[in-house]
């Protein structure tokens, strides 16, 4: 795998299936010269364009500022840390740019410069390079960086940080929909949630943009459709059940689906091929667990939104899921050799 992360082109052009054994290596899996790391990363960046448009419309220059800080910091961090490890710089595969972009889209608009800067360094350094670089990381790097800055700078990242009446943008004068629901019991209309005219992290507000980009990712097979499908089903089921048991005025399962960062997380973050399970069965489990954890954190914890922690917890469970979801080969299960 090490060689694959270093020289994806060479591996991709090599003949497929040299060994007859079932070979399970860490993702991304390269085959046939089509699916290279760079192509996948470019796909993710293309899929982020609708999110970028929605974010620019809603948060104007704050989006540009945060994206610039996070992406430049991520690239600098990648260069510095790969150099420290004595490796060839891996800027070309685009993974650092994607990590920086995802991190920027998960920050509040008015977060100070050092939040994105430190977040990007932690994401690349502690989230990726300490594990051995791209393809070896257990956790989604961007979410590691965000979790770090969330705990490190609660004032700049907490629920109150999203409200900035002095920033001169209408969207920033109100609480985020999920905070308003949790703290004040106020529901937000479905149309604003769907179109994204609400407050929130830079990339999360518009469900429509996330759907467009996410469907593109799934159609290109860059993201596995099983993960968002399972997550959406899980959230819909749990939210529908809770709605029957204890209805909240003006808040339905569609609000839960399109509110907060859920769709952004389900399509862009949870589908990271490195830190999600390998088999379709495992991906269903991963997605369902992700959706269930999001709902659990939204309803039962002090945090208004739980996408970040849900992704990190499910990332930690991926080795276990992989073990549960080993596919049965054609012709029945492989007999287990008894060790005397």
């Amino acid at each position: 795998m090490d060689a694959a992360t270093q020289k994806p082109e060479n591996v991709a052009s090599a003949p497929v299936a040299v060994a007859p054994a079932i070979h399970i290596a860490p993702a991304p899996h390269l085959f046939g010269g089509v699916l290279t790391t760079r192509r996948m990363m470019v796909d993710v960046l293309l899929a982020l364009v609708p999110v970028l448009v929605a974010s620019l419309w809603m948060f104007r220059l704050y989006t540009v500022l945060q994206l610039a800080i996070c992406m430049v910091s991520a690239l600098v961090a990648e260069t510095v840390f790969t150099k420290m490890r004595g490796r060839r710089p891996t800027l070309g595969d685009g993974s650092a740019v994607v990590t920086g972009a995802i991190l920027a889209f998960s920050l509040p608009a008015t977060a100070p410069w050092y939040v994105g800067f430190i977040g990007a360094f932690v994401a690349i350094g502690l989230g990726k390079i300490v594990f051995g670089g791209l393809g070896q990381n257990i956790f989604n790097p961007a979410m590691v960086g965000r979790a770090f800055v969330l705990i490190a700078f609660p004032v700049a990242m907490g629920a109150s940080a999203y409200v900035a009446p002095t920033a001169g943008l209408d969207g920033l004068t109100q609480a985020t929909p999920l905070t308003a629901l949790k703290m004040l019991g106020q529901s937000t209309g479905l149309l604003p949630l769907f179109l994204g005219t609400t407050n929130g992290s830079l990339g999360e507000t518009s469900a429509l943009a996330c759907l467009i980009g996410g469907l593109y990712l799934c159609a290109r097979r860059t993201a596995s459709w099983e993960i968002p499908a399972a997550a959406i089903l899980a959230v819909a089921a749990i939210s529908g059940l809770l709605g029957v048991l204890g209805p909240r005025t003006g808040w339905t399962l569609f609000h839960d689906l399109s509110g907060g960062a859920f769709l952004f997380g389900a399509f862009y973050i949870a589908t990271d091929p490195v830190s999600s399970p390998l088999t379709p069965k495992g991906k269903w489990m991963f997605g369902a667990g992700f959706g269930a954890l999001v709902m659990l954190i939204r309803r039962m914890s002090g945090y208004p939104e739980g996408v970040m922690f849900a992704v990190l917890i499910m990332n930690a469970l991926v080795p276990l899921i992989n073990r549960w979801a080993i596919p049965t080969p054609v012709g029945g299960p492989v007999p287990v050799k008894k060790t005397a």
Partner: peptide, 19 residues
């Protein structure tokens, strides 16, 4: 001022010790 720099609360907390 908070827009220029802020202490890292995480470093005072247990995760900072492990990191």
């Amino acid at each position: 001022a908070p827009q220029h720099w802020s202490p890292w609360v995480v470093m005072v907390l247990p995760p900072g010790a492990f990191i």
